[in-house]
């Protein structure tokens, strides 16, 4: 059986910035466990000498000339923003209590 614990799921959720409820953590722990059990078999065939493939079609040296193109206007840039102020995106305080 899988070694995935609820604490681990809670930690992963923190890394992924998803505020999971205790119920969600519980059900995800079970689901993740069974998925991981099923996918873990990849490590059985992945021998050390086998090269990894990160891109299905191998291309190299794909570059862009250093030439300025079109930019968005400030209005376009901010058009989807939940909150904007003074031409900038507004977010709530980054830290909580004074540190």
């Amino acid at each position: 059986m899988s070694e995935i614990s609820a604490e681990q799921v809670a930690h992963l959720a923190m890394l992924a910035r998803i505020e999971l409820s205790p119920e969600e953590i519980a059900s995800l722990t079970v689901e993740l466990g069974s998925i991981v059990d099923n996918v873990a078999k990849v490590s059985a065939v992945a021998t050390p000498d086998l090269p990894a493939t990160s891109h299905p079609i191998p291309l190299v040296n794909v570059f862009r000339p250093d030439v300025v193109g079109e930019t968005l206007t400030q209005e376009q840039a901010l058009s989807g923003a939940p909150e904007a102020h003074d031409g900038r995106f507004r977010v709530s305080a980054i830290l909580g209590e004074e540190q």
């Binding site: 900038r88 995106f89 507004r90 977010v91 709530s92 305080a93 980054i94 830290l95 004074e98 540190q99």
Partner: peptide
């Protein structure tokens, strides 16, 4: 950053 009410991003 400490004690700020909000932040703006450019």
């Amino acid at each position: 950053i400490q004690g700020a009410e909000y932040s703006l991003v450019d």
